[in-house]
């Protein structure tokens, strides 16, 4: 981990100077808040958007707060992951292409220290943004619908963290071995789709340990569903995270700067 601390301090400083720490939480908030706002406004939207004859009555039962809260993370899912891929894809490939990586690795900085600093800063950014989004969305859900169980909401969000960390790890790994950042983003997106969708067709074991199951599990925790099995998808997702982190470090070391 030689050179880890200077690299991390540089990464954290850059989060501030690039304003990522400000606009990524806003983007995540917009993504998560869309669901409660849409559900609340649905009757009005339908009424305004369609040319129904006067006197038509649209009756949509008000969704429960549990349903609304349970839908926050699945709705965030793919779009949130695409945004994470877009944020992270240039972290290493971009530095290689610009030539700054040659300046960095001519100094006593290890590949592990460099990769770990990027991983921690990227993870911190998406975790802070996710919690900001979930806290603000839960708050507005409480205003628009009913009382929210904050403990369940935060525990469910915490359980979702390995899922977004996996997306960060996949993207950094691709960024470590691809020369172009667009290429890194493309490969990361394909890998993300494969890892989240394919296990559903591979039998019950793979379904249980798949990252997609973790999203359902996190939603169940938020909704306060008892008898939720969290260990298998949690372990499965963490194993995938570790594999991509290790592969990323190895590929970075093997690649020439």
């Amino acid at each position: 981990m030689i050179g880890f601390m200077p690299m991390l301090s540089k990464e954290l400083r850059e989060l501030g100077s690039s304003l990522k720490i400000l606009y990524i939480p806003i983007v995540f908030t917009l993504l998560t808040i869309m669901q409660p706002v849409t559900l609340k406004m649905l009757p009005t939207l339908l009424k305004d958007a369609s040319n129904l004859p006067e006197g038509t009555i649209i009756q949509i039962p008000d969704p429960s707060v549990i349903d609304v809260m349970g839908s926050l993370l699945p709705k965030f899912g793919s779009l949130g992951s695409i945004i994470i891929i877009l944020i992270i894809m240039g972290e290493i490939a971009g530095e290689r292409a610009s030539g700054v990586m040659a300046m960095v690795f001519a100094k006593p900085i290890s590949y592990v220290g460099y990769f770990a600093a990027k991983l921690i800063a990227g993870s911190l950014l998406v975790i802070v943004s996710l919690f900001a989004g979930m806290i603000i969305s839960s708050y507005y859900t409480e205003i628009m619908f009913d009382k929210v169980d904050w403990l369940d909401a935060m525990l469910g969000t915490l359980l979702y963290v390995p899922y977004i960390l996996m997306t960060v790890a996949i993207t950094l790994c691709c960024s470590a071995f691809m020369k172009s950042q667009v290429g890194a983003g493309g490969v990361a997106f394909v890998l993300y789709l494969v890892l989240t969708m394919v296990p559903q067709y591979l039998g019950s074991f793979f379904r249980k340990v798949s990252p997609s199951h973790l999203v359902d599990t996190a939603s169940n925790v938020i909704m306060g569903v008892a008898d939720t099995h969290i260990v298998a998808p949690l372990v499965g997702t963490l194993v995938l995270c570790s594999v991509f982190i290790a592969a990323g470090m190895l590929l970075l070391r093997r690649q020439e700067v």
Binding site: K10, S17, G99, M103
Partner: peptide, 12 residues
């Protein structure tokens, strides 16, 4: 100490 032909930096 190393300075490449076209040194690149963190521009911010």
């Amino acid at each position: 100490g190393y300075c490449p032909q076209a040194p690149a930096f963190y521009n911010d």
